[in-house]
Nucleic acid binder design. Structure first.
Lengths: 187, 187, 187, 187
DNA sequence: TATGAATGAGATTTCATTCAT
DNA sequence: TATGAATGAAATCTCATTCAT
């Protein structure tokens, strides 16, 4: 998946990510990206010889960000805030990231469109994210609780669905109630 | 968004729906559809003067199907089966429809790509679906319960997220536990 | 190998053949061809959705022409002209066709460049040509002569080599002596 | 056409020759060559300021090899082996060199593509080869025989044609019979 | 109603070549 | 001597849409 290490690689990724989050990968031409970065199409090709390769690296960056957000919240666990409160914060935090959400859904579409390599990376990183979620719950409700598996899966599913609803309908889901639901699973 | 009335409209929609569910709207050319239907591109244009119009009608058909599935299950409510059981059945049923799921996500992408008219129709029909869900819950837990709003929103969100997970990761979510969660919201 | 039967197909082939014979397939752009035919690039694509498909059909046409020339000469066999004379005429005739020669070599290059489908067609048509040569020799020296196989192979090889020499060095080979050689093989 | 003297020139030529023999000059990018040699594109440009110049030098190397093979066989002339036998050996030897054959045909294509300088060098070296052939025949059948001119031209033409047939159809021509033909020209 | 033909605009990809360091 | 980065020009391919018949 050819990454030709260099100095502007990051700038390319950053800019491309923003454009793709706004318009979607399929509707973003390499010309658009090159222009926005301030380089020629040829130079873009020099760094990323394929649109696919570019999206591939953007996917990595994307999940890095998502996971980083979760980890950041993990720090709050164990402070005075209650379990339900923390969960609510988590959902709110992720639900509020519009650019991330849009990018997430656009990458999803790419994956569905039959890009095998991208699917593999996407799946990997998604699992990683799910693992982070499980750690989060462990910190919150104690290690080795039998409800962990179901709770994390339900939360991930909910987050995914909420990403869709938030992006398309600009409508937030009932975070507090969802948090309550989960808490009771542990009850 | 006009249909140009005609006789093969339904066949066109049916075939187009299948192709788009498989490859996505963006990756399906009108030539593909015309060929699959067995007509010429020119004729396809006679019936649908725009690709957009075609996708528009497909969206209607799509939600018809989804809602019809929900209504069908509503019949089971009140039979001997328990509340939790019925909810599980509902989630399982929707989660099992792979073609519907794929189509749903591909239409979602179209909507995100900035098609305003389609967004309006999509939103309308989605709300209709959500109303159906509320009726379903009313039948199950009694009318006018304060938890209805949250429960239906959470369920819709979960279903949406599960559509993604099922389609991309071919992995079903923990339906029974989700059903349990919801039931307790009413407890 | 998609041939979308139609009325301008032949004109496209004719023009494309001439340009490719002059510049080679690799150095002839679809734009060049479209312009020469007097159609747009899009229209050219409508008829030939791939450069490969175009070259594929040109190859067929090419061997048609080559074989037709041989068959034409077959008519002279049995007239008062001697065997050696006829063979000389054959070699001269083929050697004089400059456009055909150039096209032949350019197609050869395409075949070598790894186009499997083209290779198959090229090989088929070449064998057909070689069969025609064998018939020619049968008519000249009588059926079932043991020297037929070698003679036809040597002649084909010589013709191939002479195509190169004629095209590149603009230099004709010693046809009469070659004809003599062959005649003696039968002696 | 200038070489920019340097230390790795030979390695570059050697590697480039192999790649071009495999894929053809037109399908071999300078990036491919640079990578195979283990240097950067910039460095390759330092040694060869033009792709043309590189192919130019490769052509020289190529004919060096071809002629060297012929000269080597010349040594066998006059040993107990018969004339026909020697000629057969010669044709077999050249026919067996697959990489050389491919390279020969690819260079031929370059020449045909309108590279004037290359044509001049190619023609020069080809004549040199043909002279070598004449010397070979002189050694075999005695100096100053009137058949020399025709015999060498026919042999060269046959070899050229056989290069094509061997490369494209992976099929060897009837060497012994060709050798017989030639011998009889001297008879 | 139906269609084959035509097209223009634009997308991705490729690459020889240049150049500052 | 060596190189990574940059680029412009061009090539192939794609496709929604139009239109004469």
């Amino acid at each position: 998946m050819a990454r030709t290490s260099g100095i502007n690689q990051d700038k390319i990724l950053e800019v491309a990510e923003a454009i793709i989050a706004a318009k979607g990968a399929k509707d973003t031409s390499l010309k658009d990206i090159a222009k926005a970065v301030g380089i020629s199409k040829g130079t873009l090709y020099y760094h990323y010889s394929t649109k696919e390769a570019l999206v591939y690296d953007i996917t990595a960056r994307h999940f890095d960000q998502v996971i980083r957000r979760m980890v950041r919240l993990t720090g709050k666990v164990g402070q005075k805030v209650g379990q339900e409160e923390i969960l609510t914060l988590l959902l709110e935090d992720l639900g509020a990231q519009q650019q991330i959400s849009r990018l997430h859904l656009y990458l999803l579409h790419e994956v569905m469109s039959g890009n095998e390599d991208l699917l593999a990376r996407y799946t990997d990183r998604y699992r990683e994210w799910q693992d982070t979620m499980r750690s989060f719950l462990s910190g919150l409700f104690g290690e080795e609780h039998p409800a962990h598996a179901a709770a994390s899966a339900i939360l991930m599913t909910f987050i995914e669905g909420n990403t869709v609803r938030g992006t398309v309908f600009e409508e937030s889901a009932p975070y507090r109630e969802m948090a309550l639901c989960i808490t009771r699973l542990y009850g």
